[in-house]
């Protein structure tokens, strides 16, 4: 069994889609945060908004990893079920 048996083209497509949309969402949040920071000006509130943005970006990255793992896990299970090791 090769690497392609464990991932598959469908999964690669899903990974690309998740990467694109997660990046788009991250950029959107960064843009909104930048706009709010411009409106707020200097001060403690600006630092708080930066920290909220940082936290949200980390959570989005974790959600991205979760979704990738979810899709990969399903594909791996499907391939293991149909693999020659099981049927031999």
């Amino acid at each position: 069994m090769g690497w392609s048996d464990w991932t598959g083209s469908e999964n690669l497509k899903a990974i690309v889609r998740h990467t694109l949309h997660c990046t788009a969402a991250v950029l959107s949040f960064m843009w909104v945060s930048w706009l709010v920071r411009i409106g707020v000006g200097e001060g403690l509130l600006k630092a708080c908004i930066e920290n909220v943005e940082r936290f949200v970006l980390v959570v989005l990255f974790l959600v991205f990893l979760f979704n990738i793992g979810y899709d990969l896990w399903k594909e791996i299970l499907r391939n293991v079920k149909s693999s020659p090791l099981v049927f031999s």
Binding site: H21, C22, A24, A25, V26, S28, F29, L44, A47, C48, I49, N51, V52, E53, R54, F55, V56, V59, L60, V63, F64
Partner: peptide, 22 residues
């Protein structure tokens, strides 16, 4: 849209984090 919703749902915890840092 789902990614944006997920990020927005994490904002309350992010506010708590910002307060902790402050």
């Amino acid at each position: 849209l789902l990614y944006v919703v997920a990020g927005a749902a994490a904002i309350p915890a992010g506010i708590v984090y910002a307060v902790l840092v402050a």
